[in-house]
Design a protein around this nucleic acid. Structure first.
Ligand SMILES: [Zn+2]
Ligand SMILES: [Zn+2]
Ligand SMILES: [Zn+2]
Ligand SMILES: [Zn+2]
Lengths: 164, 164
DNA sequence: CTTGACCTTGTAGTTACTACAGGGCGTATC
DNA sequence: GATACGCCCTGTAGTAACTACAAGGTCAAG
């Protein structure tokens, strides 16, 4: 599973929570080393010890767990502000989980709004794309649909929202 | 419709293609003045004449048309690289519109992929959110779902794509 | 001793804008 | 005339979440 040969923190019995290099952690979590360092810089991962002669970062199981949590939350589309809040909450084990639920539901709502927006957009685009008859550009319905009033305004004054 | 009183390029008969200030163009297209200047800087809008004493930009109908086209394309989700290509194509009136169609279809495909991804995400999030029983955080199913292996690995090794 | 994989730091680039800061111009009002 | 107000100008920096170098240090193997 993990690297052999000349990897730094390779212990022979490999107790699964043995110290890891940043490269090991990267492989284990599917995260680039640069991203892991960046998470550290912005305070999402605690700075690990530096043990080797070469000032290398040395990670333990707590880092692996925290980074795995972070990445899974990112995969679910939570932004880093939300992830930060979730990580903080996950540490307060005896608190009520209401705040967790609030964050997750807010994110779900946002996704549903985005889905609704995209669905509208898809229909509009399908209509536009479907009208192209593949002729000259000055007769192309796609271009016409984008140029309201360049020949004649064909559509009523609709106006979509764009990020807001 | 447009400004009265002390607006700069206000003509009394207002022939609809009269020169406009950047503010007029902003109102007419629902674009902030800063954004219009930025489109100029990155070459999406031609630099207009500067006629007034105050070095102010003076726009004509061609700018209004081009900016309207641009904004409508943006509202449909085309990115600026695509908009740039579409604007270039729209000027070549006697060419075949195949390239236009290619761009539009590629964008539609991208939207459909995004929709598919988001739909999967929504289902996953709904499942996660729906399992929270509102108790203590160390029993919360949302936190558990985010922390694979922190107690026990519950899910099989799936891995989503994220921007790629 | 050299090679090569790995690590370190720091900086700049990506997308499509948005938000100032600091100042000029033109009209209206006191 | 002085002041206020609204619009315009340039230029810089910030946003989200990384990614891509550049320039160099360390370590084990051949
Ligand atoms: Zn992932
Ligand atoms: Zn066509
Ligand atoms: Zn719009
Ligand atoms: Zn819960």
């Amino acid at each position: 599973m993990s690297g052999q040969s000349h990897r730094k923190f390779e212990s022979m019995d490999a107790p699964a929570d043995a110290p890891r290099s940043i490269g090991d952690l990267a492989v284990a979590t599917g995260t680039k080393a640069e991203t892991i360092r960046w998470y550290e810089r912005v305070g999402l991962l605690p700075a690990p010890a530096r043990q080797g002669r070469g000032n290398y970062r040395t990670y333990g199981k707590e880092h692996l767990d925290r980074l795995s949590f972070l990445r899974r939350a990112r995969d679910l589309g939570f932004n880093l502000e939300q992830v930060r809040a979730l990580l903080d909450l996950a540490d307060q084990k005896d608190q009520d989980c209401a705040a967790v639920s609030v964050i997750a539901r807010a994110h779900l709502d946002a996704i549903e709004r985005k889905l609704a927006d995209l669905t509208v957009l898809r229909e509009e685009l399908r209509r536009v794309v479907g009208q192209c008859q593949h002729g000259r550009i000055d007769e192309c319905r796609i271009i016409e649909a984008l140029a309201p009033g360049m020949k004649e305004a064909r559509q009523s004054g609709r106006r979509s929202a764009r990020r807001g």
